[in-house]
Design a binder for these strands. Structure first.
Length: 309
DNA sequence: AAGGGCCTCAACCGCTTGTGC
DNA sequence: GGCACAAGCGGTTGAGGCCCT
């Protein structure tokens, strides 16, 4: 763990002197869990004092969220969870909290760690760039598939922070700052000759050839009412949409060859016809619209959850 | 057995976002 | 609109354990 004395030039998250840092003791865990079980989460800044802990609120929140919360699932990541992480990461990039939100019992920190220590290496060994999910080109593949013993593979290279520091996948339109392009009002996202997504009046519509698909996306400012939320972009619709995206046929990099070999057939349940999936060229502006949908849905769900609580 | 290198993951930091005044 | 505060997020660090020689 971090050395409590290793402050360097950085200022600690809580400037108060005398607060404990470093690993949590079982006694501290008990105090924190007991307090939250009695009083509930929230008001983290004042929680340590009320709970009798010599920790900063941030530290308490992190400990609860990542370790003590009853819903946190401990133990090995199952193969199906790993597969889901891979798919979601391809879709969302380093949006760890969004990814964690779709994997019950797993925390963003856990998924982030698992990605950095296991999955990124695994992809590299398979010749796939973990940042873009694209095949590594031969030159880099030679050097990356046998990464030097440690640092570059286990730890991502430091880089400047940006509001949306996602490495997002193959060919996704990015802003000049490196952020994925989130669709704006009246944006038209053209990804292939017969594919187009139009973002208008807070709603995204996909046109695949002659067919249109209402995606029910809404602008980042969200919804006026819960009803509107549920009607326009209900969880069922969203889940079905997201599931169709997570569906393996929508991932040409990992599955296109396989699909070409066995022949893909249209899937009427999917919002994206399977035959059209490769034409999407996942990683176009299309994916931005998808991501925007995921983010909005996540925010909306959280808001609804808050209201319920 | 000893020591060095590597790996894992809990915890921290700084920044962004949301909210209330 | 501007400010302050709280909460959330992603990147990074480093202690401790494991593995290899």
């Amino acid at each position: 763990m971090r050395n409590p004395s290793a402050g360097g030039t950085k200022t600690p998250c809580c400037s108060k002197v005398g607060l404990k840092r470093g690993p949590w003791t079982p006694e501290e865990d008990e105090l924190l869990a007991g307090y939250i079980n009695r009083e509930g989460e929230g008001r983290w800044r004042t929680l340590p004092k009320r709970a009798g802990l010599l920790r900063c609120g941030k530290s308490c929140r992190l400990r609860w969220m990542n370790y003590l919360r009853p819903s946190v699932k401990r133990g090995q990541i199952a193969p199906d969870e790993e597969d889901l992480i891979l798919r979601l990461h391809r879709l969302l990039g380093n949006r760890w909290s969004l990814i964690a939100g779709r994997i019950p019992g797993r925390t963003d920190n856990e998924i982030k760690n698992y990605w950095n220590t296991h999955l990124s290496k695994k992809l590299i060994s398979q010749g796939i760039d973990p940042r873009t999910h694209k095949p590594l080109n031969p030159e880099t593949q030679n050097s990356s598939s046998n990464p030097p013993s440690r640092a570059p593979s286990s730890k991502p290279a430091p880089r400047a922070r940006s509001p949306n520091p996602s490495p997002i996948s193959s060919g996704l339109e990015e802003t000049s700052s490196g952020s994925p392009a989130i669709p704006k009002e009246n944006d038209q996202l053209q990804s292939a000759d017969n594919m187009e997504a139009v973002y208008q009046n807070g709603t995204a519509t996909a046109h695949v050839g002659q067919t249109s698909y209402l995606l029910g996306l809404r602008s980042g400012n969200g919804l006026s009412t819960e009803e509107e939320d549920l009607n326009c972009c209900g969880d069922d619709v969203f889940s079905s949409f997201l599931n169709s995206l997570i569906n393996e046929e929508a991932f040409p990099i990992q599955h296109q060859l396989q699909q070409q070999a066995i022949g893909s057939s249209p899937d009427s349940d999917s919002l994206i016809p399977m035959a059209a999936a490769p034409a999407f060229g996942i990683g176009t502006g299309w994916e931005s619209a998808i991501m925007s949908s995921v983010i909005n849905q996540d925010n909306n769900s959280r808001r609804l959850n808050d209201q319920v609580e």
